[in-house]
């Protein structure tokens, strides 16, 4: 199948200046599936995730080697537009970060600047429906987004992301700042979203990875004393949690790590 993989990393390494943060990652991310990236803190999970939509461009001195392929194109080649990459690979951040504007504007802005010419009201409604937020906010679209609860704000951020119709949604510990109920709603939402989008999620929470994802990548510092992280094992989630190949993965998922 031609479009089985939404994005693939080939020998991808990420550097901050001369320091290698992520070492030589190979990953095939299947389309319309949820892929989780887990691992101890400081092993480069977020750095890797941010490499997928070139958010690391804003970090001075950050550069990559290797390839990141989307539909056969290397996203890091010179003729690729990073702005367009970010539009097609949306991102949801660790802490909800709505714009200090109305709920409506939060969603409409991204679409507008990207040249959306269709019916904006319809887009806003559909996006909010898609993020399971419509029923809660349909009567107060002009209210400030800051008046929403943390969980609602995070779903608003998801709605904002799907409004620009990306192919892939990156989520950087999207529920880590939320209470358990809100977390549950986000996880349910992810199952809905994967019908239309490919999702890559970084999480600290192994249970969460086990609950929501189809595939899991286990990241760790590549060797004792080094500070570069790498993917040590990548396969179906079920397998990572029940029958890992790598001893370190087993230690980590069973809580014997460190």
């Amino acid at each position: 199948m031609e479009n089985k993989y939404a994005i693939e990393a080939n020998a991808l390494s990420i550097y901050y200046g001369s320091f290698m943060a992520v070492n030589n990652v190979d990953m095939l991310i299947e389309a319309q599936k949820i892929t989780a990236i887990i691992g101890p803190s400081g092993c480069g999970k977020s750095t890797l995730l941010r490499a997928f939509n070139r958010m690391n461009d804003f970090v001075p001195g950050c550069h990559v080697t290797g390839e990141l392929l989307m539909q056969g194109k290397n996203l890091y080649s010179k003729d690729i537009d990073p702005v367009e990459v970010r539009r097609k690979i949306g991102m949801v951040f660790q802490k909800p970060n709505p714009f200090p504007k109305s709920i409506y504007e939060n969603i409409a802005w991204g679409a507008r600047i990207n040249g959306f010419k269709g019916n904006m009201d319809e887009l806003v409604e559909q996006s909010l429906l898609g993020a399971a937020l419509w029923d809660e906010v349909k009567d107060k679209l002009q209210d400030s987004a800051y008046a929403l609860s943390g969980g609602q704000q995070q779903r608003l951020c998801i709605a904002r992301t799907i409004a620009i119709q990306p192919e892939i949604i990156l989520m950087d510990e999207p529920a880590s700042a939320l209470d358990p109920i809100s977390t549950l709603r986000i996880e349910e939402l992810m199952q809905e979203l994967k019908k239309n989008y490919t999702i890559i999620i970084v999480t600290h929470n192994m249970q969460q990875a086990a609950r929501v994802s189809d595939y899991t990548a286990m990241m760790m510092l590549d060797k004792e004393g080094s500070r570069s992280g790498t993917v040590i094992e990548f396969s179906e989630t079920k397998r990572i949690f029940t029958n890992p190949k790598d001893k370190r993965t087993e230690d980590y998922v069973t809580g014997r790590f460190g």
Binding site: D79, F116, E122, L123, Q126, S127, G130, Q165
Partner: peptide, 18 residues
Amino acid sequence: MNLKSAEARKFRQFDLKK
């Protein structure tokens, strides 16, 4: 997402060219 209009469908298309 179920956007019906033609513009909306066109919006989904993309071109990564610089």
